[in-house]
Write a protein that binds this DNA or RNA. Structure first.
Lengths: 272, 272
DNA sequence: TTCGAAGTTCCATTATTTGAAACTTGGTTT
DNA sequence: AAACCAAGTTTCAAATAATGGAACTTCGAA
């Protein structure tokens, strides 16, 4: 599990597996710690780490002899975020939505079987992106995750479901594929879904998918709150407004074309 | 030029070269466009793009048949940004500095031969990270770039200089290695450097390196303004305050240990 | 000085990548 | 509607690069 990604992607897949592994520690790590967790022999792990470091995908701290994800990733993510036809376009829409409803708004996409938050707006709070965007969460027990899954085509959904852990976080967590599939049908028929404290106690949300005209899932939008302050019925009232925002984002995302910048050189390493 | 990175890094290096290439277009691209620019034969480029896409390092838009940097990068960059011992630690310091001096503050690191901005604070403006952090610029004609280069050890400096383009942006741009080296000596003896409209007209800045106790370059800090509003002498007055901030960041970065989180599972693909 | 753990290198074997060419697909012209 | 063309995809033997067991080097601790 979690090997699935690299199974058939040769050397590159294996190298990226090591990269993910380093990132998964959430702190700088020594070579031996990586080795311990990796499925490859010493020399192989060593060579991958060397390569990744020389490539700037990992950074090495010589004082502490530790590796961490490298800053080249920050540059690449900048490109990813800007070019993802969702996040930059959605920004003004969700900003308005957050101010409008006075609650936290999340924008998420599916990264394989996980929910990846690509933007988050807390009304009245300055935006702190890197500390928020990039976070991942489980798909089967979050509003955005379920909203997206509800609109996937059968075989893609099967893949995603197969990778869910169904770890029980709270007494409301959907703990089985059957429970989840039933919920997804429900969401699909309503057009929106809830998180009923399934991931964290007191945290509830309404979530809607962002769909293209053809029905492809682009992402999901949610309004999050707490049972200490409000309830599901009150959140449900916001659905039309969220739906409008989701439609606006989908519309913009689909019609968006990158301004045909004459070209592109100089974005890479200095050219000459 | 720009090949240097992958020269000896085998398959993984080549794949990452393709990834960089796609990112360098700054817009979603078709396979044929990538092929045109790549140094590899059709089948090879094709296979790399397939692999990268299946890995989530690239995303594919089936409607438009285009590739763009994938969201997996956003997740990885999140880890990179949080773990880089600089950016998250520096945030409160530069935030205070920006408010204190009332001008824009940049925090940058070296990504190979380029300057990579990892944070930016504009006083009185909400923070919009992904749209700012991740941007790259030339090292030889920016304040932060020169400040960092001034403190590199000889051979590393030689490598970095060899990759500068010395493109002339303005009439003040340092256009040769000699001019640059002279300037670097100057900066090193002063402890700080300027950008004298070398990159963009009217844009000036003072920049200081962020150094470990042992003298290793962690990054650089700059206060940027415009000749329409102020001048170099006025910026120079801020040096002590910037210096203090740089010292504080270096101090925090060096003493910082990741809170020994018991462990780390579940950061990767769902664990089960 | 000895010991052991962590990190690094070696190199014959093995598996993967390579890329020219052939093929398929989908759209456009005659 | 047939022929054409460009873009994308697959194939397969040869060439190349990855593999990993084992030996070697550091470096800090006993």
């Amino acid at each position: 599990m979690s090997q699935d990604r690299s199974k058939s992607d040769g050397t590159v897949g294996k190298a990226l597996e090591i990269l993910d592994l380093v990132a998964s520690f959430r702190r700088p790590v020594r070579f031996s710690e990586v080795l311990e967790r990796a499925d490859f022999p010493k020399a192989t792990v060593y060579r991958f780490i060397q390569t990744l470091t020389s490539q700037g995908m990992l950074s090495y701290d010589p004082d502490r002899q530790t590796y961490a994800p490298g800053i080249r990733l920050v540059r690449l993510a900048h490109a990813a975020w800007q070019q993802s036809s969702l996040a930059p376009i959605a920004r003004p829409v969700i900003d308005k939505l957050a101010r409008d409803v006075g609650e936290t708004v999340h924008l998420a996409q599916l990264d394989h079987a996980q929910v990846l938050y690509v933007d988050k707006i807390v009304p009245g709070q300055p935006i702190e992106m890197y500390s928020q965007a990039g976070k991942v969460g489980p798909a089967y027990c979050t509003g955005v995750g379920k909203a997206m899954m509800a609109y996937l085509e059968a075989d893609h959904l099967a893949e995603v479901i197969a990778q869910q852990s169904f770890h029980v976080f709270t007494e409301h967590t959907l703990a089985s594929e059957e429970a989840l599939r039933a919920e997804l049908l429900d969401i699909r028929s309503n057009g929106y879904g809830f998180d009923r404290e399934e991931h964290e106690p007191h945290i509830i949300c309404v979530a809607l998918p962002i769909l293209t005209k053809r029905g492809r899932v682009l992402g999901a939008l949610s309004v999050t709150s707490s049972t200490l302050r409000t309830n599901l019925a009150a959140l449900e009232v916001l659905v039309p407004r969220i739906s409008e925002a989701a439609a606006a984002i989908a519309q913009d995302a689909e019609s968006w074309r990158f301004p045909d910048q004459p070209n592109t050189q100089s974005a890479n390493t200095a050219k000459g």
